[in-house]
Design a binder for these strands. Structure first.
Lengths: 202, 202
DNA sequence: GGAGTTTATAGAACGTGTTCTAATTCGGGC
DNA sequence: GCCCGAATTAGAACACGTTCTATAAACTCC
C-alpha cells in the first residue's frame, strides 16, 4: 500500500517515473494536452479527447493527473521550463535591470501571444486552480519569479528583488488574462507592463 | 423584438428593471448566491440550489444571469459597491498616499478574510471569467481601481496614479487568490501588500 | 376585458468533468 | 513458467452547468 502511494505521488510530480513506458505515457498526455489546447483553448481540452489522443484510458489519465486543472497547470510548467531554457541560452541585452526585465517580459509575452488558445487554456487553468493543485501552482509561480530575478541580476536575488519579481509576475499574469479574455489589446498589455516595470525599477 | 432584447440586456446590467417584481427577483437571486457562497464557496453555488433558494425557476435564473460566472462576478460587484459606500462614509487616516492606501487595502482585505468561502467563490469566478463576462469583469476592475485612486487623493487621479492603482489591484487579487487556495497566510498577504505599496508609493 | 406577447415555471435532456466497476495486462519474485 | 499485486483498459455511472420544451401566468395595448 505505502509503496504504491509513493509511486502515485511520483506520477503527479512527473519525476522518477518507475518505468520507461510510464514516462512515455506521461509525455504523450502532456503533448496531447498542448496540442488540443493550441487548437481550441480551455474548452477543447476535454479529458476524453486528451485520453484518446494520448492513447490512454480515461482512468489512466486521471491516475497521472487528478484533474483537468492539474493537467493544464503541469503543462504550463513544462512550457515555462522550455521558455526558461531558451532564455538561458540567449544573452539578455540592456545594462539596467529595467531594460533586461522588459526584454525578457516582452519576449515571453510575445511568445505566448503567438499561441492564443494555448495561453488561454493555461492561464485560465492557473487562475482557476483550487487548493488541491497548490503544489503545481507554486511551481509555476516559482518559475515565473525566478525568470524575472534572473533578468534583474546574475547574483542571488535580494528580498527586495524577489518582491519586485513577484509583483511583476502578478501584473504580467493579470494582463495576460485580460488579453486572453479580450479586455485588453496586445498594445495595452505592452504599455502596462512597461509602465509597471518603470514604476518598480526606475 | 427590439424592445424585448433591450429589456433582457437591462436584466443583466441590473439597472432599469421593468417591474418591481423583477427587481425583487434579481435581489433574491443575488442574496441566495451570497448566502450559498458564504456557506460553501464556489462549489456550493450550484445553479439549481440558487434557483431553489431564490424561489425562481432554473430557466429564470439563466434569464437574469447567463452563467454561473456572470452571477458570481455580478455579486462581487454588489459587494464591492457596499464596501466602497462604507469606505466613503469613513475618513481615511494617514497623511500620505502610502498610508491611506495601506489603510484601505488592509480594511477591505480583512473584511473579505472574515468570509473565506464567499471570497473564494468570488475571486475564483472573477479570475475564471471568459470573454462573455467581459463587461462584468471590467466593472469590478473599475471599482477596484477607483477604490485605490480615491485613497491616494481626493482629486481626479493622474494617469500615473491610475497605473499604480491598477498594479495594486493586480497584486491584491493575486494575493487574495493565494490566500484562498491556502498558498499564503493572512500574514503573508499583509506583508506582500505592504511591500508592494511601499515600492510603488514611497 | 380579450388577444397577443413577453416572462416565468417545472422538468426533461444534454455535455463534460469525475468516479466507479469489472476484466485484462504487465512486471517482478519464486 | 507461474503467481501476485499493481497498472491499465473499456465503458458505465454520476454530478452539475447549461439548454430545451411545453405550459401557465403576467403584462400590454386596444
Amino acid at each position: 500500500m505505502s509503496p504504491s502511494k509513493s509511486r502515485t505521488d511520483a506520477l503527479m510530480a512527473g519525476e522518477e517515473l518507475s518505468s520507461v513506458a510510464q514516462r512515455e505515457r506521461r509525455k504523450r498526455i502532456v503533448d496531447a494536452t498542448i496540442a488540443l489546447a493550441s487548437k481550441g483553448g480551455f474548452d477543447a481540452v476535454q479529458m476524453r479527447a486528451v485520453a484518446d489522443r494520448a492513447d490512454v484510458a480515461l482512468g489512466t489519465l486521471y491516475r497521472y493527473f487528478p484533474s483537468k486543472v492539474h493537467l493544464l497547470v503541469s503543462s504550463l510548467a513544462v512550457e515555462l521550463e522550455r521558455a526558461q531554457e531558451k532564455m538561458d541560452r540567449t544573452t539578455v541585452p540592456g545594462d539596467s535591470a529595467y531594460e533586461r526585465v522588459l526584454f525578457v517580459l516582452g519576449r515571453i509575452t510575445r511568445g505566448l501571444q503567438r499561441n492564443p488558445h494555448l495561453t488561454e487554456a493555461m492561464t485560465r487553468a492557473f487562475t482557476f486552480a483550487d487548493a488541491s493543485a497548490g503544489a503545481e501552482v507554486d511551481r509555476v509561480a516559482w518559475l515565473m519569479e525566478s525568470m524575472f530575478t534572473k533578468a534583474m541580476s546574475d547574483d542571488a536575488p535580494t528580498d527586495e528583488q524577489k518582491a519586485i519579481a513577484r509583483v511583476i509576475g502578478d501584473v504580467w499574469l493579470s494582463n495576460l488574462v485580460a488579453w486572453v479574455t479580450r479586455r485588453a489589446t496586445a498594445t495595452d498589455v505592452a504599455n502596462r507592463l512597461e509602465l509597471t516595470v518603470r514604476l518598480l525599477l526606475k
